[in-house]
């Protein structure tokens, strides 16, 4: 077993322990040790599939991603809310295929999660082999809107790669125009 696999397991065990301690709501030796035991048993009984993660977290990219994500979420929530109260108007939508430039499992998942949390976009299907996300977008009135949204998704992907990606992925993002 490689070192990376062990690192992944340690991170998973640590994460589960933190959740356990948070659930108990008190930071005592008993909750920490108990959490570790439960985490290790859980990971032995339900082993996680290996995640290939060659990147590291870039603080500046992460900050940019999070602030932009929160902004998007607030604006889009307001948009969908206003759409809800526009009586007599039936919102139209579109299903758009977005081929990602860095379709690693983690990149695909993170992009899909972030897209799904922002109102107005919903993942209908994901083609893991070819790295294509099929996104249902609310409030699209014309093909131009759809094209604009595709660009937004690619921008989101590049922000995610800038925050979490490996050096190779970051190079691809810089070289391939969105």
């Amino acid at each position: 077993m490689s070192g990376g696999r062990w690192r992944d397991r340690c991170v998973a065990a640590l994460g589960l322990t933190v959740i356990w301690v948070l659930l108990w709501g008190s930071f005592t030796p008993l909750t920490v040790v108990g959490g570790l035991v439960v985490a290790v048993i859980t990971l032995i009984v339900f082993p996680l599939p290996p995640v290939t993660y060659a990147g590291r977290i870039h603080p500046l990219g992460l900050l940019r991603f999070v602030t932009r994500f929160l902004r998007d979420m607030v604006m889009a929530s307001a948009q969908v809310a206003s759409l809800a109260f526009r009586f007599g108007h039936v919102p139209r939508s579109a299903v758009i295929a977005v081929p990602l430039r860095c379709p690693s499992d983690l990149g695909l998942t993170l992009t899909a999660e972030a897209l799904s949390l922002v109102p107005g976009s919903l993942i209908v299907d994901a083609d893991r082999k070819r790295g294509v996300l099929y996104v249902h977008v609310l409030g699209v009135e014309s093909p131009d809107d759809a094209e604009k949204f595709r660009q937004d998704v690619l921008d989101l992907e590049s922000r995610i790669i800038q925050a979490f990606g490996s050096p190779a992925e970051r190079r691809v993002i810089k070289e391939v125009p969105a």
Binding site: M73, S77, V80, P119, G120, S121, V124, H136, L138
Partner: peptide
């Protein structure tokens, strides 16, 4: 009007 549009409403403004 349809299921997919409603999913937007069911999952999104409610998260924020």
């Amino acid at each position: 009007p349809d299921l997919l549009s409603r999913m937007h409403a069911a999952t999104k403004p409610q998260v924020l």
